[in-house]
Design a binder for these strands. Structure first.
Length: 351
DNA sequence: TCTGGGGTCCTAGGACCC
DNA sequence: TCTGGGGTCCTAGGACCC
């Protein structure tokens, strides 16, 4: 199967509609104002050369690249571009498309010459959308996904059982899709630093550290093994959430109360649009400066706006008084329709 | 320097039941 | 007097991804 990933997607979409930005350091984030609390969504390759990357606070990025063009995030534009890309992928003969995000998807296909097919796919996307992409080829979803990293930018790369260890073996475990800083550190504490070491370990040995599911799963990841089927079952959301970081910390209880009501109202709109009952609520509070607590509540299935709001306000009662609040998040989990319970999820299906 | 917003899934521990 | 073992549900928190 193949994994298609657009090159610097968000920045590329911005450059398309503002050609004069081509070749300049472009940073997209927040409302485009580097004095606000916000982070970088995407930086163009020119900006990345200065050490700017996604997730970095916007004001830091602006300091690193004084000449950067800083633009606000425009979800609508990216969604539209994304849909054009996905439509192009779906139009390929025999292709099964599993969307992972705005700018990436797995494509399942029987191809005699996968490299040639991948190059044609790149060209089709470029022709239809004027966007550059990179394509990974693999015999598992994990290998295809990891292969794309070697294909970037604007290339094709193939990873299989045959060359996996040769290419990945000496690399640190954090290079794997699904291993982050915490897990790589915990693995290192057990003497597992490289992908080859992880691949060679006994899955059962990882259970005490990571639990019955994650332990064996990390071992499998080290080998590059896993799912081999691209699944185009439509994605069904498990829940909806809204989060807001306040430009000024909230200090008065009444401010917090109002803010939660507003968040709840926005989440409820999404949930009601889906027509599924709510089964659980979670309130996330980030107290300044960076201390987060979550408060959860399971509720009997209900469509009722008033019931959900009441339950939400019970959670508000748990917020610590007198401590400034920097961020509030509210999530509603929805009951799953029976036929969707096996529906895949956007990021973990390949694992 | 000071950290978005949208998601998913896993784990641990306590409560409770039989 | 001492204290089984298995199961489920709930809450809180952690980790990761785009």
């Amino acid at each position: 199967m193949l994994h298609v990933d657009l090159d610097q997607f968000i920045a590329a979409v911005e450059v398309l509609r503002r050609p004069e930005l081509a070749g300049k350091p472009v940073i997209v984030g927040g409302r485009g104002d580097p004095t606000e609390r916000a982070v970088v969504s995407t930086a163009s390759y020119e900006a990345r050369a200065f050490g700017v990357g996604s997730g970095m606070p916007l004001r830091i990025a602006a300091r690193k690249v004084p000449d950067a063009v800083i633009l606000p995030v425009d979800h609508e534009a990216y969604l539209e571009a994304s849909e054009a890309v996905m439509a192009t992928l779906r139009a390929q003969p025999g292709a099964t498309v599993q969307v992972l995000g705005w700018d990436e998807a797995f494509v399942g296909v029987e191809a005699g010459d996968p490299e040639a097919y991948a190059r044609r796919l790149r060209e089709a996307v470029l022709e239809n959308t004027r966007l550059s992409s990179s394509v990974g080829i693999g015999d598992t979803l994990v290998r295809a996904k990891v292969a794309t990293g070697f294909a970037k930018p604007a290339g094709v790369f193939r990873l299989t059982e045959g060359n996996w260890l040769e290419v990945m073996g000496e690399r640190p475990t954090i290079d794997l899709w699904g291993v982050g800083p915490k897990v790589s550190r915990r693995l290192a504490a057990h003497g597992i630093v490289t992908v080859a070491q992880l691949a060679a370990c006994n899955p059962a040995d990882l259970v005490p550290e990571f639990g019955p599911k994650m332990g064996p799963w990390y071992a499998q990841l080290g080998r590059g093994d896993g799912e081999t089927v691209v699944d185009d079952t439509p994605w069904v959301a498990r829940g909806h959430s809204r989060e807001t970081t306040y430009q000024q910390d909230l200090t008065a209880p009444a401010q917090v109360d109002d803010a939660v009501r507003e968040l709840v109202a926005r989440v409820l709109e999404d949930v009601i649009a889906e027509g599924r009952p709510v089964v659980g609520l979670t309130l996330k509070v980030r107290y300044a400066p960076f201390f987060t607590k979550t408060y959860a509540k399971r509720i009997p299935e209900t469509f009722d706006r008033e019931v959900v709001l009441d339950r939400a306000l019970e959670l508000v009662g748990k917020i610590e008084q007198g401590r400034p609040v920097r961020l509030l998040g509210f999530r509603a989990e929805m009951s799953m329709p029976e036929e969707a319970r096996k529906g895949h999820t956007p990021t973990r299906s390949g694992w």
